[in-house]
């Protein structure tokens, strides 16, 4: 109890020194950039914050802390760093992944920060600022009881998947290779719901981005139940933050801020912290899926 008190006190001191209450303790500070701040849309500067929507069931990118309310992970930390450079607060709001893009398009939220892969299809609805590269991996139960080795191994089985993800697309595209033994693809509102199906044996596999899949297979709380079917990454692509097509001013400001985050080394530090270094991009890009 005493120890806890001491560490809480230390935390309080650190946050106190940091100047901003929501700044993660000990993170190397990224300097505020007045020019970037000035480049923000007037409305954002007036309001002082922007809102990104997320589905917090995708550790280590984002997930709920033990209290069930705080969202932690690489992306919340990255959002904090962007906020510091821009001099605004970035709120993370939970919501379904499937409808997240639409909510950005209609202006409910300024962006999606939920490990959303940049695709040509999605670029039709929004502009992406890409900051991470990853493919998809197949997660199976520990011991791989159904001997799933690749995507076609899923044919004739039940596969659980989060609605609206590129992995859901990938599965549907793979159906054509199943030759009369189609997969039963069950789609769920959150990734956690899909994983629950796998955990309880109602599905034989779940597809996740490689970082999230690796986390599941290695984290001490989950590694007893999950493993990767193979090391293969399907459909490698870039992960980014989508902004509404008519919000290029904000998009460019965030892009500029991310450039700073990369340049100052904070990006590399955060990647290392969350064990995501393998997904690092050399430079932040806009709409990378179609600009290659």
């Amino acid at each position: 109890m005493k120890k806890l008190l001491v560490s809480m006190l230390a935390l309080g001191l650190l946050t106190g020194c940091g100047g901003k209450a929501d700044e993660p303790a000990g993170q190397s500070a990224v300097p505020f950039d007045q020019a970037l701040h000035d480049s923000l849309p007037q409305a954002v500067r007036d309001r002082g914050y922007i809102r990104f929507v997320t589905d917090a069931s995708y550790a280590p990118m984002e997930s709920f802390a033990a209290d069930g309310r705080t969202i932690v992970g690489f992306e919340p930390d990255l959002a904090d760093a962007i906020g510091q450079v821009l001099g605004i607060r970035i709120q993370i709001v939970t919501g379904p992944f499937q409808t997240a893009l639409d909510k950005v398009a209609d202006g409910t939220y300024e962006g999606v920060l939920s490990a959303m892969t940049d695709t040509a299809e999605r670029e039709k609805k929004a502009d992406f600022v890409d900051y991470l590269s990853a493919g998809s991996s197949i997660i199976v139960q520990r011991g791989n009881p159904h001997r799933v080795a690749d995507l076609t191994g899923l044919c004739g089985n039940v596969v659980a998947i989060e609605k609206g993800t590129i992995q859901a697309d990938l599965l549907h595209r793979t159906q054509s290779e199943c030759d009369g033994r189609p997969m039963k693809i069950n789609e769920y509102k959150t990734n956690a719901d899909a994983l629950l199906q796998l955990r309880t044996g109602r599905a034989v596999a779940v597809l996740n981005d490689f970082p999230a899949a690796t986390h599941l297979a290695t984290d001490s709380r989950t590694k007893d139940y999950y493993e990767l079917a193979s090391t293969a990454q399907y459909d490698p692509g870039l992960i980014g933050i989508p902004f509404a097509k008519n919000n290029s001013q904000l998009r460019d400001a965030v892009k500029g801020a991310l450039d700073q985050v990369v340049a100052t080394g904070t990006y590399a530090d955060l990647l290392q912290r969350w064990n995501l270094s393998s997904g690092a991009v050399k430079a932040v890009s806009i709409n990378g899926a179609t600009q290659d």
């Binding site: 589905d55 917090a56 069931s57 997930s63 709920f64 033990a66 209290d67 069930g68 309310r69 939970t94 959150t190 990734n191 956690a192 719901d193 994983l195 629950l196």
Partner: peptide, 9 residues
């Protein structure tokens, strides 16, 4: 914690 994601409601 109503959901698998561990979100408190």
């Amino acid at each position: 914690f109503a959901r698998a994601s561990g979100e408190a409601i």
